[in-house]
Nucleic acid binder design. Structure first.
Lengths: 325, 325
DNA sequence: TTGAAAGCGCTAACAG
DNA sequence: CTGTTAGCGCTTTCAA
């Protein structure tokens, strides 16, 4: 059981291995009807299952692509991954999702592992700290698409959103409503998404002629964030509005506000970059900056698919608009 | 570039392929120090990357396991998958996540695909409609662990939670608070999780001497659910409490309540089976039945790992307790 | 301590 | 239309 190989099928059907191979690859053009039937039957009775590994070794394609997400705990990552998987599933490829946990070392390890496994291409949410590695893949013309975050000085395909602009508009909206004490909470400014959002904030404040209070800028990893937020909300002059850099930051902010008994919508206004499924349907008035995750994922998949199929195309950056909701 | 193979390394180092292979597999026991160095150097300068596919073909192990989730949109699935991945990552295996979308056909396709890819084992959130297939895997002693849902009449490893009991307690809590008109919303009762939760509900109602009003039982897929909920909440005698079968049902319920202007905690009480990250930190008083997702995932991974490594053990069902929060 | 040789299961010319 | 042959890149006895 289970060790039935193509040779067994061939023998059972009274043909040669190559004929069976033809059959399996749907090259029926020159195949006799009776041969076809015999093979079919042999496969049935033997319960034959082709071994894709052997095929891959020969064809040098595995029909697998890798997705390396920066952090799987973001809802955005899930949505994007799902779109990518859907696309590839329709094209008979499969996607492996790996989680780099925002760790450049882990990212490197996964890239190497996936390449050793001969995956046909990679979609990466880059940590941005592995430039040499990214570069070497480019040099070898290995199919890669970068997602969400930009990489420096490299001609690559990438899919991003207009972080700066939409943050700018969100802050502008706060200002229009009369807010002056606007806080900004974000994880360490090491990746383009965060710096761009921060620039949007700064620009909007500048344009509104509001001086930025350094106390209102919270830059911290998730672990340390609640502590800093606690200090922020204990200030004499508490902010009246706050921008949360993504869904995880948002959770910290909401937790902290709850602890301090500060009511969202009443005592403070809140905007968050990213979609939070449940928050969307709840009474609490929160503004979301929503990225078109599905479209972004699909586009990335398409671009990767093209590269895998050797379609010529110059590397390009695709900017998708996020929207205030 | 990139086509550098073991033979190249061997040549560059002036040794044979088998010696290089020994080196790569850390069998240094009988290897000369200078040979080792030469190989090391050759690998460096050539930028050699071993081809795992070729290795797998020979060794008949891929160091990959498959996870087939019933529906990736559940937060529970994400948490479990993450725990599984973590475990295998620590043991140098990799996990491929596939989404069956609650479709038995898709489940079957994925099982076959993953086996054709020669993955070393499978963790399945079963649809329950592919018994013959499950059975054939058991017969072949193929490593499998079932997660979340039970399969019928088969000696298998499975990880589940005490659905009936915790639902019972949740309903009992409602009753204690004086509720009589308790609704129950769930997706089609085709899998053990849902039927068990439903039994818990029925039992609790029975024990409390409350007659079940069939109008209060909403059984529907997600698409049709909002319509049925709309009718439910338009009843003369509206329920004063409702049980949502999982996170997606919960979202539908909350949406509908919002539309109808019914306030959770004031006009109606709400319990949901599963963890909803954001809802947990919000003011709205909601009761959650939380499953120990991480522990469940880790246990599943351990059991699969044992099977892969041919540790003898009788199939068994592991029940994890979920808790009201 | 190292090398030669024989595959793993499949595909892809090329003959016939 | 079908069979023969030669590998894909690696591991693994078995000799030397």
């Amino acid at each position: 059981m289970e060790k039935v190989t193509m040779a067994d099928v061939a023998k059972a059907a009274g043909v040669s291995k190559s004929t069976v191979s033809q059959y399996l690859n749907n090259r029926f053009e020159y195949m006799g009807e009776k041969t076809k039937q015999k093979i079919e039957e042999a496969i049935q009775t033997l319960g034959y299952q082709p071994n894709y590994i052997a095929r891959s070794l020969k064809q040098k394609r595995t029909s697998m692509v890798g997705i390396i997400v920066a952090n799987i705990m973001h809802y955005f990552s899930t949505e994007v991954s799902r779109a990518i998987e859907d696309f590839f599933h329709q094209h008979d490829l499969h996607a492996i999702v790996c989680n780099a946990d925002d760790d450049p070392e882990k990212e490197k390890k996964y890239i190497e592992m996936l390449r050793a496994k001969q995956v046909d291409g990679l979609i990466i949410f880059p940590t941005g700290q592995n430039n040499e590695l990214y570069e070497s893949m480019m040099k070898q013309d290995y199919p890669v698409v970068f997602m969400d975050r930009k990489v420096q000085n490299l001609p690559v395909f990438s899919i991003v959103t207009n972080n700066q602009e939409s943050t700018y508009r969100a802050i502008q909206q706060f200002v229009k409503k009369g807010h002056q004490r606007i806080a900004f909470a974000v994880q360490p400014l090491k990746v383009s998404t965060r710096t761009e959002r921060f620039e949007g904030y700064q620009q909007a404040m500048r344009d509104a002629g509001i001086e930025i209070n350094p106390d209102y800028i919270i830059e911290s990893d998730i672990l340390g964030m609640s502590h800093k937020l606690e200090k922020l909300f204990s200030l004499e002059e508490r902010p009246t509005a706050i921008f949360a850099g993504n869904d995880r930051v948002f959770l910290e902010v909401v937790k902290c506000l709850k602890d301090k008994g500060i009511k969202v919508g009443k005592d403070i206004e809140l905007v968050v970059f990213d979609n939070i499924p449940f928050a969307q349907v709840v009474e609490t008035p929160i503004t979301f900056i929503v990225q078109p995750a599905t479209e972004m994922g699909t586009k990335a998949a398409e671009l990767l698919f093209e590269q895998i199929n050797k379609v010529e195309r110059k590397p390009e950056e695709f900017v998708f608009p996020s929207k205030l909701v």
